[in-house]
């Protein structure tokens, strides 16, 4: 289980990476591959974080963070997924599946909290419209600071609540797990890769020659697997 000494740095990490998704600096440190690995490193298991990060990265390939569209908040979600998987020493059967489900559920709720934050920013901007229309410097800067602070707190709260709820739940579920470890991991990988393949199609099917290029790459990839 995650103790308080791990929870605080993970909460801070979730806050910073949640902020990166939209508000600051959008350097993509919030991508699952990075975020989950960092969370794993905080718990002392960077390799576990990287494994879960790769599975989540495959799923997140389809998410294009375009403007006002709604999408999962991957930053805090991947911190939760990486930490949950990392606390299961030796990666027992079911740990990966539970961690990915936990991350996806957190991402889903995280996406919803982002919508709430945008509404809150709108309320705040409306309240200060007169001041904004008179070109008040303090109002302009104040709105930015308010939005950034609220987003930071959103990420921290989301990460902390998700970890407190999901960490004991994941231990209980893994304790009751009844499917073979290899099948469990294959199911996670299969579902993640299915979403990734569909995302690749969605992204590239209109690009000239992309189908053949993908198939060519796939042949090389499979050959590499056979040869190694």
């Amino acid at each position: 289980m995650i103790d308080i000494l791990d929870l605080i740095p993970l909460m801070l990490l979730g806050a910073i990476l949640g902020l990166d998704v939209v508000s600051f600096p959008q350097a993509m440190i919030s991508r699952p591959l990075v975020a989950a690995t960092l969370a794993g490193a905080v718990v002392g298991q960077p390799m576990s974080g990287l494994l879960i990060g790769a599975a989540l990265e495959l799923i997140s390939l389809e998410t294009l963070p375009i403007g006002a569209s709604r999408y999962p908040e991957w930053g805090s979600a991947a911190v939760v997924g990486g930490a949950i998987f990392a606390i299961h020493e030796g990666a027992p059967a079911g740990a990966m599946a539970v961690a990915v489900v936990g991350a996806l559920a957190t991402g889903w709720i995280g996406g919803w909290t982002m919508v709430l934050l945008r509404r809150l920013n709108a309320v705040w901007a409306r309240r200060h419209r007169q001041s904004l229309e008179s070109g008040n410097y303090r109002t302009v800067v104040g709105l930015q600071i308010f939005g950034l602070t609220a987003d930071l707190m959103r990420g921290a709260a989301l990460t902390a609540i998700a970890l407190v709820v999901l960490s004991p739940l994941s231990l209980a579920v893994v304790g009751l797990w009844g499917t073979d470890a290899r099948i469990a991991r294959a199911a996670v990988v299969g579902i993640a890769a299915t979403v990734a393949v569909a995302a690749v199609w969605k992204l590239y099917h209109l690009t000239p020659g992309a189908r053949w290029l993908f198939l060519g790459g796939l042949v090389v990839g499979m050959l590499l697997l056979v040869l190694t």
Partner: peptide, 24 residues
């Protein structure tokens, strides 16, 4: 267009290799 063409090849290579490493 050029980046997506390179990405299409890369996707074909990366997805099976990543799957293999996660499966273990």
């Amino acid at each position: 267009q050029y980046v997506t063409q390179v990405s299409a090849v890369l996707a074909g290579i990366a997805i099976p290799l990543a799957m293999d490493r996660i499966v273990g």
